[in-house]
Design a protein around this nucleic acid. Structure first.
Lengths: 220, 220, 220, 220
DNA sequence: TATGAATGAGGCTTCATTCAT
DNA sequence: TATGAATGAAGCCTCATTCAT
């Protein structure tokens, strides 16, 4: 549990090496930009934001230093762009929380949980960045993070409220209930990411659903 | 054939430079160390590990640069010491998970939840460091994080298993149930820290307990 | 659980600071590298390795701090590069130890002595570094020094052995004889460097040759 | 052949350790001073001047930091004191170069060579400091070194001159001949110190004497 | 005589960013 | 669009030296 030595690197400059030949084919602006985002996501996920340097990025992208700055004004900017993208993905995954007839509620909830879990599970690098790197940032970063969670929680909360009105969700602070639901999913992902646990999506979904339905304690 | 590391060495002696003056009140070793830990916790919580420099720490502590290094070998080391302390705190807060008569189980669980929540709530800087800074790490750091959570989860899981044997906890993967419980508490703290929500401890405890007891969904 | 090394990172980006201006004329990579080596040799020779700081080097080279590290990973590395170069020089100077007809042996030996002395004399900074700075080292450094001399002595020793087989060198431990020869040349250089003596190369070569040929003592 | 990493240490402060008890018995001033010199000689010989820190010295001496400065004004001062002592030793060892009747010359020379070699061989730490550390110093240090060698060479040179007048030493620049003699001895010691070679004193003396007597080359 | 907490200049190294080509 | 040499602020850490007790 401590700050990392940070060295260990590899992309750390080749002081004294002969300059590499120009090796990059021209590329349409959009493609190059996408490539940068892709490469950066991998690196941020694998090494963390701070431990990833521009040197790493350009090396993996196979371009020269200056090229990076033709596409992003700063390291922070590419990170932000990435977060925007990630948020959009997650948003999309949870989007279809639609409330229908009471009969289908349980099924619908389950479907949503499953959709979210699958999305996250299938995009671990994304989750990694979201959970591990999207913190410890500056004020602007915190705001972005806050906004993201505000949106996510608002959506869950709304669903909970509707559920309560329909009598399918237990009474209680919808705000907190939303947080709990989010916490269960997030933590499952988080523990997988840091490697303490690992479970198949199916079981995960089952168990979450079970906990949502009956709680954990049987005694009263 | 090599001269040594090239520190400043006795360059001073050789150049005949003058020496500095002591300035700050002498302090017993333990006190000074405690002061450093205190100051560092505040700073790490407020600005994050990366954004906190030794310069910040010594400035707030009101001592000279070298003094810091008499107490901690590196920035990483003080961070580690801090985490060790934090872990001990959390540990102490949840320690007394003792199983007695089934009747008391619910009460005991509630007591533990309450103790944990209060501890965390009352030590927000601590929580901040735990949740926000204990990320963005390199491999060595991840290992420690993993170890920390492995210990925490093992403890919860054991309690869950016992509960299941006693018939007071619903059947299901104890590993996942432990993760869910952890997730609910962590997320509550996390959302408060990033500022999307804020709730009094009492309500938090009530709601967690409620969710643990009956789940969230009423429909089957 | 640990944040990374804690470099300055993108603190700038996050704080919105402005960037520096380039100042020095661009230079082909090779030229700049050569310049660094040149400057460093002078400084190491004049002030010694320890007393020479990167600050000195970049000041004399007229470039910014970071520029140095684009060419050498560390102060140690430039020192090593320098020594490699120096060794190559010395190597080249003594290289052509070829044994032909016995008649030419004496002449060949003399030629070699002369070549070596001239090379060293003409590259006093080089000698200075070799003799004065290549000491005061830790274990790693000592190994390199040992390696260097092992190579040098092996070469001389081989020549001595061959000479003995040809009957042109007196019997005796070739290993020690090699050391003596090395010692005579080294000491001559050393005394000139520290300033106790100074002699023209011609005389030096004559005297060395004379001593090699007939020894010093006439009595038996 | 390069500057040393310098780390590897061991005496590098025990940041965070509990303060050690006072552990030193009072000691007469002279004894303590002698102890410091002894300890420092060992350390300088083993690790080199730069790589030896005050921390190393006081640790090995078993006293507190401040105590050192009660005896020496600076690190440089203890080094200088040491050099003074070493010079005195060597001086004493070579002192008895007395010229007697021609008949004994060879024997006398041999005796002197032997005395010097033995002294040096028996005080390798001393030699180590003299050869390895007594260079790369500041101007004052260089002067001291120059003075030392000036004295040593003057003595040898005088002996050579007398020998020439007596017709037992070959004609030639006595100054250079002195340097050669010194070089042969020094180099033998040096190579042993850095570990490329190792020979028993007897053989060393024999071979030096042999080389002095007949030179190395047989051909003319 | 001995202690050891405190000092702070000084050194090394990193890396995001610029800009002339 | 791409390049890569150059920049320099910023950070970490060391260690000889002081001084109040």
């Amino acid at each position: 549990m401590q700050p990392a030595k940070g060295r260990s690197d590899d992309a750390r400059a080749m002081a004294g090496k002969t300059a590499p030949r120009a090796r990059v084919a021209r590329m349409p602006r959009d493609e190059r930009r996408a490539q940068f985002l892709h490469v950066a996501l991998d690196l941020f996920a694998a090494r963390g934001y701070h431990a990833t340097s521009i040197a790493h990025i350009i090396e993996k992208a196979g371009v020269a230093r200056g090229t990076f700055y033709q596409y992003f004004r700063s390291k922070k900017e590419i990170f932000d762009s990435l977060l925007d993208e990630l948020f959009a993905h997650v948003n999309a995954a949870v989007a279809p929380i639609e409330i229908a007839a009471p009969v289908n509620i349980a099924r619908a909830v389950r479907a949503n949980i499953e959709s979210l879990c699958r999305t996250l599970q299938e995009n671990l690098p994304m989750g990694r960045v979201l959970l591990e790197q999207a913190v410890g940032l500056d004020e602007a970063g915190r705001k972005q993070l806050r906004d993201f969670y505000t949106r996510v929680l608002a959506r869950i909360e709304r669903a909970v409220s509707v559920g309560q009105q329909l009598g399918v969700v237990r009474p209680g602070d919808p705000s907190l209930i939303a947080v709990f639901l989010l916490g269960m999913v997030k933590e499952s992902l988080f523990q997988q990411i840091i490697g303490t646990r690992s479970f198949p999506v199916d079981r995960l979904v089952d168990e979450i659903f079970e906990s949502v339905q009956q709680g954990v304690l049987l005694v009263r």
